[in-house]
């Protein structure tokens, strides 16, 4: 299944703000359709990593390649807005959606650059709404008129409608309650398999990583504490910190049996 060239690959990513080193020595590569889970405690630099990759923070690296746009850099990552054919699903769906704009229009905005005719655009939005299991009536709803889970589905739809090669997820489930988390996680997984999209997901939930990830990147204080495939990470963690973390999760019963 693996092609010879990764979809995204980065080595020795460095991010600093002022004299404080936020991230250093981050390396990973991902092939099409794979999912990377970035785990770590808050403040470890998980969200910084996502922002840096999208050019939203000044960052440097030894090399950074991104296949969809034949993008290759070494040195400073050019600051710009986002990678082409990539979308970003944020942690809090309510702040990620304009409270005074209907869900349909928010989703349609993802295709702003394509300048489609209105009826065509509406059709695409309705079809992506059904992909995330929302009925047509949600097109005209405001974010305040739907549940958190439905709002996060809309955000997912906003990412999917562009048929991106890569989707960043920043704690996509942490604002939701357990049952909704499970449903949306399933939906995310189903859509990834169906469209062969690459996911990079920030999470602090090891159970989620154990269930869905292909690779796990564990951050601690801005440095990589472990970078392994899922099975290796949970069976044979690379570092002491990873060992402690996996053991703790197991003792709490947070991991599925297969991974434990």
């Amino acid at each position: 299944m693996q092609q010879n060239k990764p979809l995204i690959s980065i080595s020795n990513l460095q991010v600093s703000a002022g004299d404080k080193q936020l991230l250093s020595g981050v390396c990973f590569d991902l092939y099409e359709g794979e999912m990377l889970c970035i785990v770590g405690e808050s403040g470890a630099g998980k969200s910084t990593l996502i922002k840096a990759l999208q050019g939203m923070m000044p960052a440097r690296c030894d090399s950074f390649t991104y296949a969809p746009s034949n993008f290759e850099v070494c040195g400073a990552i050019p600051s710009g807005l986002g990678l082409p054919q990539a979308r970003w699903v944020m942690q809090d769906p309510l702040s990620a959606l304009n409270p005074r704009q209907s869900l349909g229009r928010s989703i349609a905005e993802s295709l702003h650059k394509e300048r489609l005719p209105k009826d065509h655009l509406r059709k695409r939005v309705l079809s992506v709404l059904s992909d995330v299991e929302l009925s047509e009536e949600f097109y005209d709803r405001l974010p305040s008129q739907v549940s958190l889970g439905q709002a996060q589905r809309a955000c997912l739809a906003r990412a999917l409608i562009a048929k991106p090669k890569l989707i960043f997820f920043d704690e996509p489930l942490s604002a939701l309650d357990a049952l909704v988390q499970k449903k949306i996680a399933h939906r995310m997984e189903h859509l990834r398999r169906a469209t062969n999209t690459t996911y990079i997901a920030v999470t602090h939930d090891l159970g989620f990583a154990a269930a869905y990830a292909d690779k796990v990147l564990l951050l601690r204080d801005g440095t990589v504490s472990a970078y392994q495939s899922r099975s290796a990470f949970f069976a044979n963690p690379q570092s002491d910190y990873a060992i402690d973390l996996v053991a703790a999760a197991q003792s709490l019963g947070a991991l599925p049996k297969a991974a434990a």
């Binding site: 979308r87 970003w88 944020m90 809090d92 702040s95 990620a96 959606l97 905005e109 993802s110 702003h112």
Partner: peptide, 12 residues
């Protein structure tokens, strides 16, 4: 806020 960031990323 996040939705403005999203709008920027979408090229508005």
């Amino acid at each position: 806020s996040d939705f403005i960031t999203q709008a920027r990323l979408n090229g508005l």
